[in-house]
């Protein structure tokens, strides 16, 4: 994978690297067993301090996503990709149909984005109905 560093984003550089690895895990660009680029590869390409890369990798390790193998490099331990979250999953298709209705109702792209963000915020605050593995969820 290739890292991009946006110096104007206001997000700490090591966090940008952490987020990009997580995104790659979600998209399936990185899979368990894959090796992350070495610190020297990353710094040569992005011109950032090597300690920043090491800090990002330590954070990913702390979260259990990657593991260092001495002398070999840093490897992905688990994936973040969820088939339920793919664009062609039932949930994705539901949402696509909803977006089509929103457009038909005359909503602009920004209106739709704002509405989705508001509903997501509302849906994920407070004690939600979800936590727990899918098997424990009762179909309603």
């Amino acid at each position: 994978m290739e890292f991009r560093v946006d110096r104007r984003s206001g997000v700490a550089t090591y966090l940008q690297l952490v987020n990009q690895v997580k995104q790659a895990l979600r998209l399936g660009v990185l899979e368990p067993g894959d090796q992350l680029p070495t610190a020297r590869e990353v710094v040569a390409a992005t011109a950032i301090n090597p300690n920043t890369v090491l800090k990002a990798y330590r954070e990913l390790e702390r979260e259990g996503l990657v593991e260092p193998r001495p002398g070999a490099g840093t490897f992905v331990r688990r994936s973040l990709s969820r088939p339920e979250a793919a664009a062609d999953s039932p949930l994705g298709l539901d949402l696509a149909a909803w977006v089509a209705r929103a457009r038909a109702a005359g909503l602009e792209r920004e209106d739709v984005s704002a509405l989705i963000a508001a509903v997501v915020d509302a849906g994920f605050t407070g004690p939600g109905p979800h936590p727990g593995p899918p098997a424990e969820r009762k179909p309603t």
Binding site: V43, A45, A47, I48
Partner: peptide, 13 residues
């Protein structure tokens, strides 16, 4: 950018 990357590489490697 290239030279900075090279300097960082020297530091890392």
């Amino acid at each position: 950018h290239e030279i900075t990357g090279l300097l960082m590489y020297q530091a890392a490697e």
